[in-house]
Design a protein around this nucleic acid. Structure first.
Lengths: 217, 217
DNA sequence: TCATTCAGTAAACAACTGTTCTCCGACTTT
DNA sequence: AAAGTCGGAGAACAGTTGTTTACTGAATGA
């Protein structure tokens, strides 16, 4: 058999990664559908034909970038949500909100180009990429719904309705991430303004969930 | 002076409109940044050079499309929100939610390509278009905030926090509109599924607003 | 050691791109 | 009726684009 860590494979992965990195760099200021194959290979320093050794399409490159951008996030999200399992009270809830917002802020700070790519291509013109992003976000919603289900405030909620609520949380986090991109990375004040707004909105949603089945709701 | 309804002006507006219409048609399956000038003029049946008589750029065409897509919506939104002014009780609130959701559904049904364009270019690669969309959505948030302010449930809310809440409503409506686009126009079941989820989420937010300052919030 | 695999190259393909120029001819003003 | 305006056509510009082809030479496995 051919073990997968031969010199050949390693070098192939290196240029593949170089293509992904250069793509991300070039996509900071343009859409995937306007990124040229030659433009990309020129940036990397390989011949145009070399691209086809790694991806069938530009769409293929895009799908790979989606995985790079969001793939590692699932475990992190589950970890954050686990800290609120079974906990009650608004103090505990606020801690969970704070942790979620902090996670969003940190991830955007550390992966700006990736997040920008996701925001840009979420409704972009490249079908397979749109589908890949939608699939990842759906998985996020599943995970958030599972996390919500363990909390006392969700006692009277059906699984289906919890999933709808989870989508609201996910959408809101994506919106917050996109808002953070609109502000320069070193603008601490603008940064904090967005995060404060995000916290407020999450608290409104949390309160709404808790009182949703009250008599005067 | 030259009155603005001469044969000349009318014909000019006609080809301008033809450019906008053809643009919208071609943008249904691609991004603005990948729409070629020649591709567009070919679709309309005019020479490439004719484009420059109407727009300096593709970005210019895009900004004009933003106005076409969202400009007429402000008055409609104000009208819907006015019906809830000063009203209390969850029944009245539900009516307002229903009206908002119905407005969104109708507008998407009647302006699918426009809304698709907005969703696609909201975070797209063309700066001026992004800015134009952001400006329109900000105006929507202003209008929603003004509408919310007239309701008893907002009694203890500051103007600034109401504006943050209004952005949540606007974001949610945009997300709902985008979700409607993902489903074929004649899929009544999928359509209704999305609208039911939107209503639920809006109700959660409304309940959260009402109980936000409760002792156990 | 020798044959095989295969990532990357170079060149050629036909087609396409945005922009500028000069010109025409129908509308508009005087 | 003459002079002026101006939307649009047509051609030329110098590039660019994605894709396929035959090839090289180093890593690989027997």
């Amino acid at each position: 058999m051919s073990h997968s860590s031969g010199v050949r494979q390693v070098q192939k992965q290196q240029t593949r990664q170089a293509l992904l990195d250069a793509g991300l760099r070039l996509l900071e200021h343009q859409n995937l559908s306007s990124l040229g194959l030659r433009e990309l290979t020129r940036e990397v320093g390989v011949s145009p034909a070399a691209f086809y050794r790694h991806f069938p399409d530009m769409a293929g490159l895009g799908v790979a970038l989606v995985g790079e951008a969001l793939g590692s996030l699932h475990a992190t999200i589950r970890a954050v949500l686990a800290q609120g399992a079974g906990a009650a009270g608004s103090a505990q809830n606020d801690a969970l909100i704070e942790a979620s917002v902090a996670l969003t802020a940190d991830y955007v700070a550390d992966h700006r180009p990736h997040i920008r790519f996701i925001a840009r291509e979420r409704h972009g013109g490249v079908g397979p990429v749109r589908a890949a992003i939608a699939a990842e976000l759906d998985r996020f919603a599943d995970e958030v719904a599972a996390g919500l289900a363990t909390q006392p405030d969700s006692a009277r909620w059906s699984a289906a309705d919890l999933h709808v609520l989870a989508q609201l949380y996910v959408d809101h986090m994506v919106a917050t991430a996109a808002a953070l991109l609109e502000v320069p990375p070193d603008d601490r004040a603008g940064h904090e303004r967005i995060l404060a707004a995000a916290r407020l909105r999450m608290r409104v949603i949390a309160v709404g969930r808790r009182h949703f089945f009250d008599a005067d709701a």
